[in-house]
């Protein structure tokens, strides 16, 4: 009986860790989705900037004011931003991968513990 209780305690601890891992994965997936939208938005802006003809003027909204900007400057700004966000996206991707591996390990461990408990319980019944 004591053996089962000890297992139960361990199982609960593992389960708690598993749940917190799942929660973390969820959080990172949210920020991943946000980065993806930003990449899409900046991609669209980049395409529009490239379409601007020689006589078209480009303005950047800084606070409440529109400031005139050269096409090359605007493009390099957007490119820099895209690079940065893509970098962040990659970081989040690796973090999610790591966490998923960890959570898979935890899941296996939990199942193992559950099996052990069942075996012990059926032995005691006999």
């Amino acid at each position: 009986m004591q053996a089962i209780q000890a297992l139960q305690v361990r199982l609960e601890a593992e389960l708690k860790e598993f749940r917190s891992l799942q929660k973390q994965i969820g959080n990172y997936q949210n920020s991943r989705a946000q980065y993806l939208t930003q990449v899409n938005e900046n991609d669209m802006v980049k395409k529009e900037l490239e379409l601007v003809e020689a006589d078209g003027e480009i303005f950047k909204l800084i606070g409440p004011a529109l400031i005139k900007q050269e096409k090359t400057e605007a493009l390099s700004n957007v490119n820099k931003r895209l690079e940065f966000i893509k970098g962040e996206l990659k970081k989040v991707d690796t973090t999610i991968g790591d966490l998923e591996k960890k959570s898979e390990d935890k899941k296996n461990k939990v199942m193992e513990l559950q099996q052990q408990m069942q075996q012990l319980a059926s032995k005691q019944q006999q």
Binding site: E41, V45, E48, L49, G56, I58, F59, K60, L66
Partner: peptide, 9 residues
């Protein structure tokens, strides 16, 4: 055109 950029057309 998005992300704070405006263009005359």
């Amino acid at each position: 055109i998005g992300t704070g950029y405006y263009v005359t057309k």
